[in-house]
Amino acid sequence: MSTWLAIALILIGCSFFLAGTVGLLRFPDTHSRLHALTKADNLGLGFICAGLAVHDGSLTGTIHLLFVWALAMMAATVSAFLIARWADEEPEH
């Protein structure tokens, strides 16, 4: 049961990554690309971490994975902010 749940969660996560990548490639300007990317980063990684936590089943593993997700979100937030600000300053990009 938990295996199937894990697979389902990871697949959902992967689909977010896929959508994010398609968005990154297809969207016209920096802001909308960032929008697509953050979906992949936050939700995609979140679902994959959740799936792995279910698969792993241990408490320490879950905490580790939670850490991974939180740190990645933190870095993503700041870098997305910096990129967006740079895009505002240089409108031709």
């Binding site: 740190l71 937030t77 700041v78 902010f81």
Partner: peptide, 15 residues
């Protein structure tokens, strides 16, 4: 320094 960098470093340094 850009707005978000300080909090990031404040968190990242101890981690």
């Amino acid at each position: 320094t850009p707005l978000m960098v300080d909090p990031l470093l404040a968190m990242a340094t101890p981690v």
